[in-house]
């Protein structure tokens, strides 16, 4: 099913280059510090949850890595190079509310946008591209909604369309901002399955995640932050009550969720 994803050739070397290496990254908004001296190197593959309280700088971290907001200091490298040279290798799924839902575009149109970079400037979409877009919609279980206007879909379905757009980019590194926020059970199941397929195909998926109770079920790696790096590593050894308390400032029960 996931044949379009090439096997991870980067890992064939002796010293693999990490998909994402962040050093001393700081982000500021009008004098207010959102993130300070954040340093972390991602594993070669897997499913990473970025966890922290509201206003901890989780979204800022993703946006700074993608050059969507300016860095106040530090660097972020994608497979050893600046993001501007590695756009082909990464895909981004923004938080839900950031587009005009009345826009004249169908689900298939939105997914096809993931192919734009490979099609190239000045060239129109061809019939094969539309077929390809439908195939990615099928992967997230939405093939019968291909011609539905994007605003006419449910919240969970919209989130799956944006996931399909990211899949269409055939990237090695996936960055998602709260993909599970406010989605239905079907969408949650589809996304979890797609994430696992991506990992098995050798990709790295990094998602900002807000629901502490499901971290262990979905992810294998976790990064805890609160304006600065707190802890990062395998869920089993890093996602400890102690580290969580350090992140949130108070002891939290793992089962309370949010």
């Amino acid at each position: 099913m996931l044949a379009p994803f090439p096997s991870n050739r980067v890992s064939s070397g002796i010293m693999p280059i990490p998909p994402l290496a962040i050093r001393d990254l700081s982000v500021q908004y009008g004098g207010r510090t959102a993130l300070e001296n954040f340093t972390w190197t991602a594993p070669e593959r897997g499913l990473v949850a970025i966890v922290g309280p509201n206003g901890a700088g989780k979204s800022s971290l993703l946006k700074a890595v993608l050059d969507l907001v300016p860095k106040a200091g530090g660097t972020a490298e994608i497979f050893g190079k600046p993001v501007s040279e590695q756009r082909d290798l990464l895909a981004y799924v923004p938080q839900r509310a950031s587009v005009d839902w009345d826009f004249p575009a169908t689900a298939a149109d939105v997914v096809a946008m993931g192919l734009y970079r490979r099609i190239g400037w000045l060239k129109p979409l061809r019939a094969a591209d539309h077929v390809s877009a439908k195939k990615y919609l099928d992967m997230v279980g939405l093939s019968e909604f291909a011609d539905r206007q994007i605003g006419a879909l449910s919240g969970g379905q919209q989130q799956r369309v944006f996931l399909a757009r990211a899949l269409a980019q055939a990237a090695k590194l996936f960055l998602l901002d709260e993909p599970f926020a406010g989605v239905d059970a079907v969408t949650e199941g589809v996304m979890t399955r797609v994430f696992r397929d991506l990992r098995d195909a050798g990709s790295l998926v990094i998602a900002v995640h807000h629901d502490l109770s499901s971290v262990k079920d979905i992810f294998d790696t976790v990064v805890l932050l609160n304006r600065e790096f707190i802890a990062g590593g395998p869920v089993a050894t890093t996602f400890t009550p102690d580290n969580i308390a350090r992140t949130y400032g108070v002891p939290l029960s793992l089962n309370s969720g949010q």
Binding site: D67, S84, Y92, P94, F103, M113, Y116, I119, L122
Partner: peptide, 23 residues
């Protein structure tokens, strides 16, 4: 507009995404 139709469409719809794919 014909030549840059898809670029105009993606920037009008989702400028942040457009930037991540180098448009």
């Amino acid at each position: 507009i014909v030549l840059l139709f898809k670029e105009l469409r993606v920037v009008s719809f989702d400028p942040d995404f457009a930037r991540t794919i180098g448009i």
